[in-house]
Design a protein around this nucleic acid. Structure first.
Length: 262
DNA sequence: ATGGTGGAAGGTCCA
C-alpha cells in the first residue's frame, strides 16, 4: 500500500505547520510539492525529515517555482528536467521503493490573456504541455504515476462554471485539448476521476482573491494524479483535502491524496 | 471593465 499526496504549497517555509498537519492527518508515504519557492540553502530539510520524510528529492531555484518529492520510502533514479529550453524547476522524478516512477510536474500558469500572440506566458504553457506529452509518449519499464499542479481544469465539472470560464486561462479549449492529447498519448488514467463520478463537481484550488471562497465555491480542479493504465486497478482511494483551504495561512491549492495497492 | 490576495524578493515579479 502506498499513500501519495500532491500539493501546491505556495512556499514550503510558510506552509510547514500545514505540512505537519498533512503528515499527521493523512499519513502519506510520499508527498509531491509544487511551488516550494525556496532555494536549496533555504529548504527546511531538517524539519521535513523530522516529520518522517527521510528521503527528499528537490529541484528548486530562488523565488519562484520549485518542486520536491518527500518520501518515507527510498528514492532512486532522481531526475530533474528542463522543458522548452527553460531551466525553471518544474519537473522532477524519482523511483519510489523500486516499484513506481513518480513524476512531479508544475505546468506554467500561463498568465491572464489566452492569446499566444499577445501573451508569451500562454505560449510557454502550451509548448510545455506539448513537450511533456511527447516526453511521456513512450512506455516505461517501471509503472508511472504523474502528479502535480497542471494548471488546467479539463472537464466541465472541474470548474464552477464551464460557460463562464471558456475564455479564462486554465479552462480554454486550446489548453484542454492539449492536456487531453497528453493524457491520450501517454495512455494514462485519471486516478481522481476513477474515484469521483464525471458528473460531480470537484475542485482543488480556490483563488486567494475571493474572500468568500467557501460560500461562493468558485473553484477549479487544477491538480491531478494520473497513472499508467495498467495501474488503474491499483487505485483504491482518492481524497481532495478541502479542509486545508480553511486552515490558518492556507495555500490556494489543497492537497490531493491517493492510495495505491502496489 | 476592474480588481481583488498572497509570497518572495528587494524597490516588482509571478500566481
Amino acid at each position: 500500500m502506498l499513500r501519495l499526496a500532491t500539493w501546491n504549497v505556495n512556499s514550503i517555509r510558510i506552509r510547514l505547520p500545514l505540512l505537519e498537519e498533512l503528515a499527521k492527518k493523512e499519513a502519506p508515504d510520499v508527498v509531491c510539492l509544487q511551488e516550494v519557492k525556496a532555494k536549496e540553502d533555504d529548504f527546511p530539510f531538517k524539519k521535513i525529515k523530522e516529520l518522517g520524510f527521510e528521503n527528499i528529492a528537490l529541484y528548486s531555484i530562488p523565488g519562484y517555482n520549485g518542486v520536491a518529492i518527500l518520501s518515507k520510502l527510498p528514492l532512486s533514479d532522481i531526475n530533474k528536467y528542463c522543458h522548452v529550453g527553460k531551466d525553471d524547476a518544474r519537473h522532477i522524478s524519482a523511483i519510489v521503493d523500486n516499484k513506481i516512477e513518480i513524476h512531479n510536474i508544475y505546468v506554467p500558469a500561463g498568465g491572464d490573456i489566452p492569446d499566444v500572440e499577445n501573451n508569451p506566458a500562454f505560449a510557454h504553457k502550451l509548448n510545455f504541455v506539448d513537450e511533456a506529452a511527447a516526453f511521456f509518449s513512450n512506455k516505461a519499464a517501471t509503472p508511472r504515476l504523474l502528479c502535480g499542479d497542471f494548471n488546467i481544469a479539463p472537464s466541465e465539472n472541474d470548474v464552477w462554471s464551464h460557460k463562464a470560464l471558456l475564455q479564462t486561462v486554465s479552462h480554454t479549449p486550446v489548453e484542454v485539448e492539449k492536456l487531453k492529447n497528453f493524457f491520450k498519448q501517454g495512455k494514462f488514467v485519471d486516478a481522481i476521476r476513477l474515484y469521483f463520478s464525471e458528473s460531480e463537481k470537484i475542485y482543488s484550488w480556490w483563488s486567494y482573491r475571493n474572500p468568500n471562497w467557501m460560500k461562493n465555491d468558485k473553484g477549479r480542479r487544477l491538480d491531478h494524479v494520473w497513472v499508467d493504465n495498467e495501474l488503474s486497478s491499483a487505485i483504491l482511494k482518492a481524497k481532495i483535502c478541502k479542509y486545508f483551504r480553511a486552515e490558518e495561512r492556507p495555500s490556494d491549492h489543497v492537497p490531493i491524496v491517493v492510495e495505491l495497492k502496489i
